[in-house]
Amino acid sequence: MSTLKKVLETKKEGLLNIYCTAGYPELNDLPTIVNALHDAGVDMVEIGIPYSDPIADGETIQKSNAVALKNGITIDLIFEQLKECTPDIPKVVMTYFNPVFKYGLEHFCQQCQKVGVDGIIIPDLPIGLYQASYEEMFKNYGLSPIFLITPQTSKDRLQLIDDLSSAFIYAVSSSSTTGKATGGLSDGNTYLSGLKDLGLKHPILVGFNISTSDDLALVQKHAHGGIIGSEFIKYLSDKPSPEVAAQQFVKEITKG
């Protein structure tokens, strides 16, 4: 069983997943950040593989992608860096279809397995294409596909996504790009409060637009956990030590 599945099995609520962009803020910061997040008690990390044209991302993550690419990050270097990360924290990678397609999907899956990546988020991978061409491959390399759902995702589609999933489901808090909302999430959000009643087999982690400890507490109440990206990237941007910053950020966001 993957590290990711083990964590999901043993911890049923209050999960915290933090996103960081590989190659940001400095080229080789990834292992330092991942290990610091692990030490700070984060349950899993989502590692962004930078892409020149991230259409689902807002300004903050666009910028971190651009900086990382300028720093010289490559997919092969990210796999090297992942070897330096502690094996004890579950890792999922997030990227777009084109870099993985160009790298070669099978080769990419192989490398993921080698360095202990348990899940892949490719927001622009069509579900039909996944079923037709990649489902078998992901399984062979022990990788869980992680699909997004939105407040507009239909019942039939939710069912299909649940059936295709093997780890968790990524619910976006509202249909938007990342890091878009201002003013935080509201307690009266009926989409969030209805998540547990969707009747899905897999745990749901909520991401997009979680910027305060209140937001996090809210999604942890209504779902199995939360995913924080843009807010952490912003936090890292002006701190001298990514290690200290990662630990402080977790403390602040969990009110720990």
Partner: peptide, 17 residues
């Protein structure tokens, strides 16, 4: 490769940028 949501040809690096 895929640019702007369709599979076609595109000018890209070996890393798909």
């Amino acid at each position: 490769g895929v640019l702007h949501a369709s599979m076609s040809y595109l000018m890209q690096t070996s890393d798909g940028q």
